[in-house]
Design a protein around this nucleic acid. Structure first.
Lengths: 245, 245
DNA sequence: AGGCAAGGGTTGTATATACAAGTTGTGTGT
DNA sequence: ACACACAACTTGTATATACAACCCTTGCCT
């Protein structure tokens, strides 16, 4: 599982040819070899270099163009886009996917995982009725060993009783919740804040750095499954602080 | 000698075949003929119906899939996406609606409105090709006479020529643009930042206050209509900083 | 009845080819 | 020196074909 970017468990299953080309291009851009506005090899050049048909080379360029990484101009050529004009919309993005999509390594550090007392506020947020329990977890997400997001998550224990038994260094809470209670919708509130000293310490930032704070309630058919507070320092979480919706 | 037969310059230049198929599919979905989760004609069926090659039919389906309108499953077929993944879940809210919804008074102060030179970055953001013009406006939004958001907006002048003549104390740019060029989609980048001194001055805040900055590109059928930077201090724009998606 | 294998249908990947349409640079003629 | 025509190159659209991977139903066998 060296370079297989996809999390699919295909043993050796060779990647599609066009993904190889895409990877080649992305690496050259990331390394700075091809700066912004630089001309990218033409379809014909890629065709020769990788010994594929033009349509295959074309697909690689097309895909990256749709991702906003390249810009194409009929007659002129293909160029590195000057702006992260990420277009991807919708869907609740998983931070680990996001990180691996930009070719980086995602790690998670589980700080806390326990059952907690239910406050009034929580009861409202999670639509609790009786004396249902709530689990609380804190997970620190690392991109190439740099802390980029602190996730504080409250979970309705009656809907997801196994939550306490999970190990969130292997699977993100979001992935786990999706597997046990398919999400039907989510509501977000997004705010710019100065994080608390404790949170800043986890994120290894100064206390005067603005952070993007996303409060997310996720729903399944059974009701509100969890409430999460995601805090990302604006100066670190490069593309992703950039919550692209 | 550009082949001027009696066919005069075909301004109407017949659309590409795959766009015709896309339109056909979209119409059926919009009319409710094909509800959510309904099966869409397979590539082969479209191939026969429109008398095109499979790759052309495929392209139509592929495009709509990338737009989140369809969902494809190898071996099973192509289906109309369910609401969740379809609704570009971030409805573009109008700030004046938001303010009046919480029973407050909205006012707008037009700081700047003029034509500006086109930088390279702008040309890419707005998908400009030739020497099209760009209009620039700055509008300060007030909630009960308190500044809560600075809107800096760049507009593709060739798509919205009348923009310069508007008075944005009476109607917001967003309302105006919606009326002349119905929006089909928008992409957002959201970030937490410290605003520039000039912006802070307009917003009447200290320079160390974290702000929520939304960069929004709005599209109509003609292309990118405008690019806006919306800056709101996190401690003022209570509910609304709260971009609810 | 239950489990399993086979087959047909559907999407995914890939190739080879052709022409259309737009950009850029070269060179010729005036 | 300038304008124009043209060639070379690049991306856009389209077709025809082949095989792989996958889903679902059918039907056979135990």
């Amino acid at each position: 599982m060296a370079t297989n970017s996809d999390n699919t468990v295909n043993k050796s299953a060779k990647p599609a040819k066009y993904t190889v080309i895409k990877q080649y291009i992305c690496e050259n851009i990331e390394s700075g070899e091809w700066p912004q506005n630089a001309k990218v090899p033409s379809e014909n050049e890629l065709t020769q270099k990788f010994d594929v048909s033009r349509m295959t080379a074309r697909r690689a360029l097309q895909d990256l163009t749709e991702q906003g990484i390249l810009v194409r101009s009929q007659g002129a050529g293909t160029f590195v886009a000057t702006f992260k004009s990420q277009s991807s919309l919708l869907e609740i993005r998983n931070i680990s996917d996001e990180i691996s999509e930009r070719g980086h390594q995602h790690k998670a550090k589980q700080l806390i995982l326990r059952s907690i007392a239910v406050s009034e506020e929580l009861a409202i947020l999670l639509n609790l009725k009786n004396n249902e329990h709530v689990y609380y977890s804190e997970i620190l997400h690392l991109e190439n060993d740099e802390a980029i997001q602190l996730e504080q998550r409250y979970v309705n224990a009656s809907l997801v009783p196994e939550y306490l038994l999970q190990d969130f260094t292997q699977i993100t809470p979001h992935e786990y919740l999706s597997s046990v209670a398919p999400l039907t919708e989510a509501t977000h509130e997004i705010e710019a804040v100065l994080a608390s000293p404790e949170v800043c310490q986890h994120l290894e930032i100064e206390t005067n750095i603005p952070c993007l704070q996303v409060k997310r309630r996720t729903w399944s058919k059974q009701g509100v499954v969890s409430f999460a507070i995601l805090t990302s320092p604006g100066n670190k979480y490069r593309l992703g602080s950039h919550l692209v919706v």
